[in-house]
Amino acid sequence: MTAQERDDLTDFPVTLIRPTSGFVSLKLGELWEYRELLFFLTWRDIKVRYKQTALGAAWAILQPLLTMIVFTIFFGRLAKIPSDNVPYPIFAYTALLPWQLFAYSLSQAGNSMVASQQLIKKIYFPRLVIPISAVLGGLVDFCLAFVLLIGMMVYYQIAPTQGILLLPFFILLALATALAVGLWLSALSVKYRDVRYTLPFLTQFWLFITPIAYPSSLVSEKWRILYGLNPMAGVVEGFRWALLGKSGSVGPMILASTLAVTVLLIGGLFYFKSMERTFADVV
């Protein structure tokens, strides 16, 4: 072999294709290589959504706004649910923001693998790109709805605390929760089409066990860490703490939530990866 030939050879990346067995590798490096595809799929989802809807971006604000109004009337006024000494509308809206982000991202991610089956059967890329891009698509709506929150904070004259610096962390936590559950569900949905019917129920159920219409202070202190195992409880209380300067310590609860998400996410990643090799054959 001449030196020239050796140089030619090193130009070509060598890939070995063989049956995988045993331990599953996450191959996150490969995911990074496909970051442009991730970007384009997210961009497509967002673009298509706003093209196909008559109200477009208004939906992003209308949904939490209307929910907030209903909550305020029924839970705040009529049922007189306490709101930790914060005006009820902003109390509810601050929780609805991350909730909508989570609920939307979860439903998109959960259905994403079946929705993209055409792609899966015809082209190779790390399949993780699909649920991740589905989750990221929810961020645009979130940002739009956030503008309304700023307006409300000005109206109610509530200044955010220094805790606002931690807000990105709580957003990340909400996305991670959606991704973690989304990974499990989307991988399951390839084999079991029940998932499509499970999702709406799951989201509704989850809404009730998350302190959105009510404060987590209704739960007694000693149970609160256990309550924090619902990651969205930690996210919601984290949002209120960061934006409304709610008193009381939310630290232990958030810690529990973070831990729960981490376990759920890592499990989801490995489960998804272990199913990945058969996706194209089964879907």
């Binding site: 070995l16 049956p19 190779y124």
Partner: peptide
């Protein structure tokens, strides 16, 4: 060959994108 699905047996060595 395009890695959409996995082989059950054997191997493929690919040099290049």
């Amino acid at each position: 060959l395009s890695r959409i699905t996995e082989p059950t047996r054997g191997s493929i060595e690919v040099r290049g994108r």
